[in-house]
């Protein structure tokens, strides 16, 4: 089925094409910084896409999602420090550790609701933060430098900027497709139903807890993958990637882009991080603009950019005599 030619779809398509062609432009313009920035954007977009599965579709207001960025990253970093560079070991460990942490946190926190859920996910992520800050062998507060990126088979070489960029992009596209399948499956219908009306779900015969827990684990695992990528990207991992304000950043990306649409978080990640670059170029005190801006988005643009594009498109279409 061809997607309809709406304003929103045109923008989304253009964004995808731009992401695919970016290395070509960077090569021609010899702009290294752009590559680095966008690799980072793509990795954080992956994290945001994973958060969106539980936040946007499942209505689970997790405030500790950055923990998985750290866990994935530390799995890579710690193994590298111990001399294990093989990506086929590092990455499964990163995913497994993230999944396990998500399973424990989810099993406990999904028993609660509302603010309790927010605060518990937040607190567990902080716990992970303090734990890695306390382990001197792996750098403690100062973090851990990774001297060699994950090794896979020839000719895949993560140290090659272009290869690494396309690997990240391919994983992002894969994740988008995965989430798309998930949310339209029976499983996805259940978590969306539970977001919408938990009591009714139980009344019609579902026990949503198990499904929510599985969603929570999938999201954590996917974000752990983003963590492994991020550690490879920066050749470094430190507790600060899992600090709670980073979880806040991920939530901002999801809401800014548009919750509950599969692509929304990608738009949000690109917008937020590019905005950060632009604003910080204008003033050193750029967060003094970003903060109130955020409040305004909350108050007046809850559908996020994706929602605005859809609305704008509708208005254009209706305004045009047909």
């Amino acid at each position: 089925m061809m997607p309809a030619l709406t304003l929103r779809n045109i923008v989304v398509g253009a964004l995808m094409v731009a992401l695919i062609l970016l290395p070509v432009y960077a090569q021609l313009a010899d702009d290294r910084f752009l590559m680095t920035l966008f690799t980072r954007i793509i990795i954080l977009a992956l994290a945001a896409v994973s958060l969106n599965l539980i936040l946007g579709f499942g209505g689970m207001m997790s405030f500790g999602h950055a923990a998985y960025l750290g866990i994935g990253g530390y799995a890579v970093g710690m193994l590298a420090k111990e001399g294990i560079m093989n990506g086929f070991i590092q990455w499964p460990v990163a995913l497994g550790a993230s999944a396990l942490f998500a399973l424990i946190v989810g099993a406990l926190s999904l028993r609660t609701r509302g603010v309790y859920f927010i605060m518990i996910t937040l607190a567990f992520a902080q716990m992970a933060y303090y734990v890695v800050s306390g382990i001197a062998r792996y750098g403690g507060d100062d973090g851990l430098t990774i001297y060699k990126r994950s090794q896979f088979f020839e000719p895949l070489n993560l140290s090659n900027k272009t290869q690494f960029y396309y690997l990240c992009l391919a994983i992002l596209f894969g994740a988008i497709y995965l989430v798309r399948r998930l949310v339209n499956s029976r499983f996805g219908m259940v978590i969306q139903g539970a977001r919408s009306n938990d009591v009714r779900m139980r009344a019609i015969g579902f026990s949503p807890y198990r499904y929510k827990l599985v969603a929570f684990v999938i999201a954590g695992t996917l974000c752990g993958l983003a963590g492994a990528l991020l550690a490879n990207h920066t050749d470094f991992v430190s507790p600060s990637v899992m600090y709670w304000t980073r979880s806040g950043d991920l939530i901002i990306m999801v809401v800014l882009g548009g919750m509950g649409t599969v692509i929304g978080p990608v738009i949000g990640a690109v917008t937020l991080l590019v905005l950060e670059e632009v604003l910080s170029g204008i003033t050193e005190y750029w967060q003094i603009i970003l903060g109130p801006l955020l409040l305004l988005v909350v108050l007046f643009a809850r559908g996020g950019i994706d929602g605005l594009l859809t609305q704008l498109g509708e208005r254009l279409r209706r305004g045009r005599p047909s």
């Binding site: 029976r186 779900m201 019609i204 015969g205």
Partner: peptide
């Protein structure tokens, strides 16, 4: 959804419901 609740488990992740 009400039908689905009574049509086996819902740990089906891929097929379009």
């Amino acid at each position: 959804l009400a039908v689905q609740a009574h049509a086996g488990h819902s740990f089906s992740f891929w097929r379009n419901a």
